[in-house]
Design a protein around this nucleic acid. Structure first.
Lengths: 208, 208
DNA sequence: ATTAATAGCATACGATCGTTCGCTAACGAT
DNA sequence: ATCGTTAGCGAACGATCGTATGCTATTAAT
């Protein structure tokens, strides 16, 4: 059924298309990615672009998946090496700020953009974005839970609230950086994160 | 030069088009507003739709302006009756939560959506969004300043930081509500606002 | 050397995009 | 009653959209 020999020739084409789609979507949104413009920027025919995917929506889904993978590599991977709990949360927020204020995507956080773009439309893209953000906020909540269990955050802390606030601040940093090119965006985010994670009355001030 | 007699016949048509554009844009974004679909939903011809504006971009700008006016009426107006300073900030956050979790726009906060949609494109729409959000954050910052002067917030408070965090939380509430239909969105936002405005060590606990 | 499979191209399709053009009704002023 | 003004329509334009179809090279296996 599967001629599994060399998947490299076509696979490179495929990932080239995805990369171009991610770049285009990061700036103008996933809906504005166009087969014709992809073909132009890749110097291919339109048929050659849509061929490996079959449908524009599947190109969008592949681009989204690729952007998620980049997020995971840039934010989760470095933080996953920290101790679970508060220090991992701190590592996440730091890596997240790097990601948001760095040059990862030319047009800002891909997920945030896709969330805003598709929150009013039904479809697979919207569902995928929803699933991903739910999962990520679940990760944040879990780490906050661990931090509470370890006594690194006050016992009465609501982990879901921590997750919500961290995620909201990240959205604020992204907007400040992308729309206003605010150079203080990173510092503002860092301060807010500190305020969220150093809740007054933390039990053991022996952080680390 | 101006036959200023009755501007009502055409003006009603114009505002009907704008209303339809706002509705459409709130769900699918300003770029996805289409002359043809506007004409369909209004049972008019395409020429009749674009006529009063001349250009699609001017329809977008008019829709944006209308949405800004709605925001002002729903959020700023009620809050402007409160005392400047902390109580006005509290009134703003409360009205903002009403606005975000109510039925004002079918597709969530128009400004936030437009900001995400246009932060990667040049043009007048982007500039207008930028100007508006800057202005609004300036209002928040000013009220925080007054609150500091009045001793309602600690003297070392950074008003810009307060404005940034409030705005970020609003973005988080909007996403939680629109993408995830999270019923706790409002409560999460309210809790976060409380945390931001009740900074530990507030000087005069005689709030009002 | 021949064959089978595959990558990608050229072309074309119907739909829809934003915009333009001329026309027709209706209306207000004289 | 006539005439200018104007709101809005019908139709058409070139461009571009997503997608389908067949073909031509190239490659891998026999």
């Amino acid at each position: 059924m599967s001629p599994r020999a060399s998947a490299s020739a076509a696979a490179e084409t495929r990932s080239g298309i995805i990369d171009a789609a991610v770049r285009q979507a990061s700036l103008e949104g996933l809906e504005s990615v166009t087969i014709g413009r992809l073909a132009g920027s890749l110097e291919m025919s339109k048929a050659g672009v849509i061929g490996p995917f079959g449908t524009k929506e599947r190109i969008q889904l592949a681009a989204l998946e690729s952007a998620i993978e980049i997020f995971r590599r840039k934010v989760w991977s470095p933080a996953s090496e920290a101790e679970p709990g508060l220090s991992r949360l701190e590592a996440i927020t730091e890596a997240w700020l790097d990601y948001l204020t760095g040059e990862v995507f030319p047009g800002g956080c891909f997920l945030t953009g896709a969330a805003a773009e598709f929150d009013g439309r039904p479809g697979e893209v919207r569902d995928a974005v929803d699933r991903t953000l739910r999962l990520w906020e679940g990760v944040l909540e879990h780490e906050a839970e661990v931090a509470v269990e370890k006594g690194e955050l006050p016992a009465e802390t609501d982990p879901g609230q921590i997750a919500f606030e961290i995620h909201a601040i990240a959205q604020g940093v992204n907007q400040a950086r992308q729309l206003r090119d605010d150079p203080r965006a990173r510092e503002r985010g860092a301060t807010a994160f500190r305020r969220i994670l150093n809740a007054d009355g933390a039990v053991s001030p022996s952080s680390r």
